[in-house]
């Protein structure tokens, strides 16, 4: 299973390296979301600094919808996933591979967006360890839930409209927890026992497990 996961992740990342969809389309989109949020609120530095973590994670969540949709679209096109199953690739491996590839792309996107956020909103960031660790688990959770739901909705012609409806309420705890743990971290708390971090870890583990167990049924069913 792990070997299959690595293979799938490698394949998807290679596709991304060649097509650069995330880099050329999703990343600029996340950037513009950060900019228009400032339009919607206020340009006063106080407001922007205060809401920076929330806006950042909302931008990530919105971008992730595009990212997971893309990750599954690669497979549904020409029924490529059937091909993978015929080759004997482990379904759990496909799931974990997809999650890994989405995770890498989203994490890179977050690094760029963090820099953009610091420049645009100017928050002062304290505890970097907590910032990094929460980002890792939040991204893992979003990727796992996203890939799972994207696959569930994949047979639909209306999947572009269905996916956000399914994913956003499910991922709302991640949005909340990531925002809050970043607020704690920005305020200078570096300890990793933050309850929000625990929630992020639980969410990521639950969705990774659910996806690994159920992916087979979704693909075949």
């Amino acid at each position: 299973m792990w070997r299959d996961a690595l293979l799938i992740a490698g394949k998807d990342l290679r596709i991304e390296l060649r097509s650069k969809v995330t880099f050329n389309q999703i990343l600029p989109f996340g950037f513009i979301v950060l900019i228009v949020f400032a339009f919607a609120l206020d340009t006063s530095p106080d407001t922007l600094q205060m809401v920076a973590p929330g806006l950042f994670w909302l931008a990530v969540l919105i971008s992730s919808i595009l990212g997971v949709d893309r990750a599954i679209a690669i497979e549904t096109h020409d029924n490529a996933s059937d091909g993978l199953l015929v080759y004997g690739v482990d379904p759990g491996g496909i799931f974990l591979g997809k999650v890994a590839s989405v995770f890498v792309q989203l994490f890179l996107l977050e690094i760029v967006l963090t820099i953009a956020m610091i420049v645009l909103y100017g928050p002062k960031i304290g505890g970097w360890p907590l910032v990094t660790i929460s980002a890792v688990f939040a991204t893992l959770g979003i990727s796992a839930a996203g890939v799972l739901y994207s696959q569930l909705a994949s047979s639909s012609k209306a999947k572009q409209t269905l996916l956000p409806l399914l994913l956003v309420p499910v991922a709302s705890p991640v949005l909340l927890a990531a925002t809050k743990s970043w607020q704690d971290a920005f305020a200078g708390s570096a300890w990793l026992v933050d309850p929000w971090l625990r929630l992020l870890i639980v969410f990521a583990v639950v969705y990774l497990a659910l996806g690994t167990v159920f992916y087979n049924s979704i693909l075949e069913g």
Binding site: L152, P169, P173, K180, L199, F203, L210
Partner: peptide, 19 residues
């Protein structure tokens, strides 16, 4: 599967909102 995931999600959602 979706119904089951939704149900499993409820306590997580609840906990996050309570906190």
């Amino acid at each position: 599967i979706a119904g089951l995931i939704a149900f499993i999600d409820v306590p997580i959602v609840h906990q996050s909102v309570v906190w």
